[in-house]
Design a protein around this nucleic acid. Sequence first.
DNA 1: ACGCTCCGAGAAAACGCTTTCTCACAATTC
DNA 2: GAATTGTGAGAAAGCGTTTTCTCGGAGCGT
Lengths: 342, 342
Amino acid sequence: MGRRATTRRIGIADVALKAGVSHATVSRVMNGNFTVDPTIAERVRAAATELNYQPNPVGRSLALGKTDTIGIVVPDLSNPTFQAILRGLSMAAAQDGYRVLIADSSEVSSEEAILAGEARRRCDGLVLCAPRMADAELEELAPSLQPMVLINRTTVDTHTPSLMVDYGQGIQELAEHLVGLGHTRLAFLAGPARSASNGLRLAGLAKFTAAHPGIELQMLDGGSTFEAGHQSVDAVLASGATGILAFNDLVAMGLLSGLHERGIRVPDDMSVTGFDDIPFARYTTPTLTTAAVPITELGQQAWHRMRDLIRQVPSDAPAGGPTVFEPKLEVRSSSGTAPATN
Amino acid sequence: MGRRATTRRIGIADVALKAGVSHATVSRVMNGNFTVDPTIAERVRAAATELNYQPNPVGRSLALGKTDTIGIVVPDLSNPTFQAILRGLSMAAAQDGYRVLIADSSEVSSEEAILAGEARRRCDGLVLCAPRMADAELEELAPSLQPMVLINRTTVDTHTPSLMVDYGQGIQELAEHLVGLGHTRLAFLAGPARSASNGLRLAGLAKFTAAHPGIELQMLDGGSTFEAGHQSVDAVLASGATGILAFNDLVAMGLLSGLHERGIRVPDDMSVTGFDDIPFARYTTPTLTTAAVPITELGQQAWHRMRDLIRQVPSDAPAGGPTVFEPKLEVRSSSGTAPATN
DNA sequence: ACGCTCCGAGAAAACGCTTTCTCACAATTC
DNA sequence: GAATTGTGAGAAAGCGTTTTCTCGGAGCGT
């Protein structure tokens, strides 16, 4: 049986009693069913407002088989990129009367599957944001998580809409941009190894080096955070490169800060680029050249795909391939002409 | 009746059938009730794993009268402060097996009450984060939202734990710091009028001016965002002040950026301070002097208060007054000795 | 005036689970 | 060996809704 006899929340039965009708009728009125006599409907409505009745969503969910809630799993809620996606998702979903339940895997890829499952069972759908798990695991998990939308990953089956960012293209454009400014010695501050988007960047850079044999490109280990960027100052300086491609804006900002402490002038002595165009990128000193990804729009789009999935009958046509977002080169003041070779 | 006959999710009945027992027994086994014969328990467990059975949380919630979920209402999810609180809350709650449902009021104070109510009904408790609504409304709403934890606001009744930051003290310390550096003309870039924390800052500054008759302090309209800070450059320059107290770190960063564009050197020509110590404050150029608020800890503490509320019987002793967090002056490079008067 | 259809509202089943109640059977006691 | 206690599992009620089913009564046609 249920819980103890606290001051019971007022329920549909109370309204029914007060209005002198059955629960069924109250339910009908609350849901705008017009087969109810206007007189009675009014009586019910009066009773409801007087008792300040609010339907219990849990009971409702059980009966309806839906929760009007979607879940999102992110690897790290402290990353502005994921925060922005979450925000876009949340705002867009709210527009349609849906709520968002969050789950942070703290970059622990082994937790993702459990978290995703738990969240999914409580919700009508799931957005999996840049999952760190292996392809095989994702593939195996996907069917049980449907309806689901992927961000920055794909599955082979076409049931799962996927939102991708063309990091490869973006990083190439950044590299080209630096080359256009006369830089011949570049360095890439790589991100987390498990990150699929890091892989895409590497692939893009491979294409780039193939197309520019004369350009030197060093690979430096980094990370995805401020601290990572800040700590890589020494490695960057040791590399001798004059054009630095940071994994993302956060890393670039950390680097900028470290360089400033060392008295290295940006962009006079060295050029630095980021990736993502987080809101802060516009306000660093100097302002950050980056590849702009429409991150909040990504979240918003994720909801729209999800909404389509939820609304139509399951037996729907596959969504086709992933939607690919092209980053847009955003030239600001952290990149400039290469210093004269000494 | 329930929903249509899709490929029904597998439920407790299926397990019961497969194991040749009643649902009751399955439920007992799943909940670790030891009054079940080990042989049968094993059989049930086998059936459950074979069918990959996972209890439906909605049914469970209805029967148990709890959802293992808490809600949080924030005024603006794009504000790093609220993001950090959300993160702290989410991580701490996850530790105890609770999930977080988010609601963003988009700074629309009239929406807060509805959002809060909706979220509360779906959850076991609610964290109201810096609500913009009027005192009277908050007071009226509070009883129906219990259990609830407030951040940056209080109610007169002591049932609602409240987490406060002593913005008044913090801003005074920042002002004193600037005075200590020789600044005699200060300006405060105010935040949103509806923000209670802005009120606290103003009160603190009132004390400050009372204690320092010789110091000039101008009040400038600002906001709470980058853009606000960036746009106030003209007003700041026009004020003639050399020490600027920004409403928060975001505003300070926007201002920093604007000043840099104008060629104003910080801190040589002008000192700028923020508030909150968001992670970015450490990596601006120059690094930002600010008053550090333990924001993620705030979220974490909010969960702990909530947990206490949820765990013990309702008839508990009042939590006492609000918990007050003292900001800590964090001197970095954006503040320096006042320029020589010309 | 009789029967037929239609309409509106109550009764009851269903959603998926937990938990009390109940009872059959085995084990203990005198 | 009969009465008694104990134990373990099924039956059923309950959580708060929605929705189908059902049925009484009003309205209509012939």
